[in-house]
Amino acid sequence: MFKFVAMRWIFILMLFSCSTQAQKRITYAVKGNDTLYIDHYEPTTTPNGMSIMFVHGGGFTAGDPKNQRPFAEGMCKKGYNVFVISYRLYLKGGSFGCNTATPVKLKAISTAVEDAADAAKYIITNAATLKVDTSKFFISGSSAGAETILQLLYNPWATTDKARYDYFATPRFKGALVFAGALIDINTLKQDNWVPMLLMHGTKDQLVPYGTASHHYCSANSEGWLMLFGAKTILEQAKTWNKPAVLYTYPGKGHEVANYMFREFDKMDAFMQDVVKGKQIKAEDVIVEEKTK
């Protein structure tokens, strides 16, 4: 009896350890005093062949890959191979608000984009070792991370850093999952560089605009005025060009939607499954009415 009980507990502990497996940490670059790394989470169920690179938020001042573990583990349970990257926080301990000069803000964004590009190239270059099917490789980000991935996909710095970004002239991502993100230049979005996008945004986001407005809604005469083009504006362009994009709009919600990657696992999974299967995805705005407690 004792042996049976002991074996039962060992089995339970094994299941628990599998469901919360420790990630593998990989260094992808060393830049100055920053050692940049990737936290790799492997599927905890039958692999579905798809991989995701995720970029965390934090206003380019803070944030940590370890805090994205609930997202990674949630997707691993659905068979995904997940990579959460670190990147240089140019404004670490500072502010990304209206009093931070616009050129400094742009430097913070471009620094993150550089690192995201280098991390993605590392993953793709080491695809065989990391069990990545590069034809089913998605990119995702939240808030500052969402701005980072959008700028990597539709890159305003592509011509000024060809050594780094020419690699991405060939499409490297199957699609993008964007949580409360925005573009800094809508003109970088073109018909021939479009990737299928799943966008989630709250209509009352006061940090990253849902449509077209200044970052943090800073006044035009403030030092940190920076125009941004949010999810609604991106979707309108998708409709004009008949490109694949699904926007989940959350009426009355604010920047908290940036954290919805911790809960909308079924929506993310369905989108990526449709993209990989080649299902036709029309530009669509899905209004999600949530009950207030």
Rank of each mutant, 00 (worst) to 15 (best):
F11A: 14
E289R: 15
S140T: 02
E236P: 00
V178G: 00
C76V: 01
I186A: 13
Y28T: 00
Q206Y: 08
V195Q: 10
D185Q: 13
L152V: 01
E42W: 06
L36E: 00
K24Y: 11
M197I: 12
S140Y: 01
A117R: 02
G224T: 10
M7P: 06
T240L: 11
Y260P: 01
Y28D: 01
K3S: 11
K291H: 15
Q237Y: 14
R25W: 10
M268S: 09
I26R: 02
K277V: 08
R164P: 07
F137W: 04
A108V: 11
E147C: 07
T134H: 07
S219T: 14
S110D: 10
L152G: 00
S51L: 12
G57V: 09
P47K: 14
K131Y: 07
I52K: 05
G141A: 06
I109T: 02
G230W: 00
Q191W: 02
K267L: 10
Y87V: 11
E236W: 03
L247E: 04
Q191H: 08
A101M: 12
L153D: 06
C76E: 04
N67W: 15
T134Y: 07
N48L: 10
Y41V: 00
M1A: 15
F60P: 00
T160D: 15
A283Y: 15
W241D: 08
K121W: 12
T170V: 10
R172A: 06
I52S: 03
I10T: 13
C218K: 04
D133E: 15
E42N: 05
T188A: 10
P156N: 09
E73L: 13
F173Y: 09
R8F: 12
N67T: 15
I184W: 10
K190S: 12
R172G: 00
D118H: 07
V275L: 09
A112F: 05
A22C: 11
A245W: 06
E236C: 03
V55Q: 04
G175N: 09
E290G: 05
M14L: 11
Q68F: 11
I234H: 01
K190N: 10
I234D: 00
Y28I: 00
A108E: 07
T111P: 01
I52E: 01
F60S: 02
A108T: 14
V246H: 06
A283T: 11
Y28L: 00
E289V: 14
Q280A: 11
I12Q: 08
S143P: 02
A283R: 11
K131C: 05
S219V: 09
A120S: 12
I26F: 11
T170K: 15
T292I: 12
M14R: 10
K162N: 13
G141R: 01
F179Y: 15
M14F: 07
R8T: 12
F265P: 08
Y248M: 11
V288F: 08
M227S: 05
T233I: 06
L177T: 02
G74D: 02
A163P: 08
S219K: 14
